[in-house]
Design a protein around this nucleic acid. Sequence first.
RNA 1: GUGGCUGUAGCUCAGCUGGUAGAGCAUCGGAUUGUGGCUCCGAUGGUCGCGGGUUCAAUCCCCGUCAGUCACCCCA
Length: 434
Amino acid sequence: MATLQAVSGMNDLLPADGQGARWHRLETAFRDTSVRYGFQEVRTPLCEYAELFQRGVGEATDIVEKEMYTFDDRGQRRLALRPEGTASAVRAAIEHSVLARDPVVRWSYVGAMFRAERPAKGRYRQFHQVGAEVYGDDSPAVDAEVIDLASSFLQSIGITKFIVRVNSLGGAETRARYREALLAYFAPHREALSPESQLRLERNPLRILDSKDPRDQAFKAGAPSLVDALTPEDRAHFDRVQGFLTALGTPFVVDASLVRGLDYYSRTVFEIVDTSGSLGAQDALGGGGRYDQLFTELGSAKPVPAFGFALGIERLLLAAPVEEEKKPFRVAVVAVAKPDENTTHAGVLALARELRMHGFETVVDTRFGSMKSQMRRANDLAAAVVLLIGSNELAAEQVSMKLMATGEQRSVPRAALLDELTQTQRAPAATGAP
RNA sequence: GUGGCUGUAGCUCAGCUGGUAGAGCAUCGGAUUGUGGCUCCGAUGGUCGCGGGUUCAAUCCCCGUCAGUCACCCCA
């Protein structure tokens, strides 16, 4: 490797690829949707004390165990690039006592996350998420509304082929009871399980249910059902979530084997899976759930119920249709060099500036090559209108205005130029492709 | 972390069984000295990912390494 290059799994977005515009539209769509659902955007640092994620996401999760970018600060504290957004947002909510001011807080976020995984399609080491969180309300209405937010956002960006899977993990009491039941069930079969699952048996038996390993699949069917372990309260909560989702018209399926990779979830969890096939093996667009214990685990004096989700932007863009970009009304100003270069060049720059101040997207080929090359450049940049400035125009206080679509050209008094351009912009014919 | 495939101009690729590289597109210039798109002509541009080995000689064979990609794992 002779030249410097980007860190593996971390990508550049070049304007020429048109990706920047797609990202921009997606983020705008997310902000629009989340604002309509009553959310406000929060921004937290990319970097936190590693301890936050160890306590928040869970020491035994893959994310913290082997995928976190950690490094030492100048002092002794261990820092980490955030592998997900929820822990940071909750930390900020606690630190700034936002629940003391507002009984219920609805936050959204957009930003980069980091996980040191082997890159693959739709999976990168720096990836980006949009997410939303609700703090301070344990109502099942929150669960339903936030799942609905995620779902309607997907539709707003043209993603229609997806499935929302929901499940309930139950509260702390249920989790403890169910864990015992799973242990009792799997322990006799220990040797037959995959090596990973033998480890999971000790650390987080729940995750065995999520395994795709055929050795584990064999035992899943007969495993005790989580639904049966739910307390009446958990049961009622989950039933109401489903009822609300149905009332909202948000399609979903209940999937009893759905377990999320983060430790902080309780009660409702959900995952949105792409069914268009455009994502390869990484078909999860995102997911989330309820995490009623996280505030307490991160040091909040009072327990705060919470619900949230995150979606991966890269994956959304793989799944979303590529929309046609609107062609902007662009003006190019061209200098006719003779006989006095400096005067005409200055005239071009001054005119371009004036147009920009009036809102016109204006380009100048500042190399000021031959007229031919300037015209070619204007054409390459898809300018709808080219304005020509030369000694004739300067002397007469006029500008030659050429419509690229038709080739029509006429002289316009300098004083009337802005009105002319405004009218041209409104006429659809002038903005069409040349 | 494990495995498969790939790595030649800015991009997409060609290069037969080893003799130090080509095309198309893109870029720049020209074909009437104040005018674009089409066409034609020309030019710029590559230590053939990097390092080592075999050989008289390697882009082509072998090894290593880095990178990309896909899959496993996990998840966004």
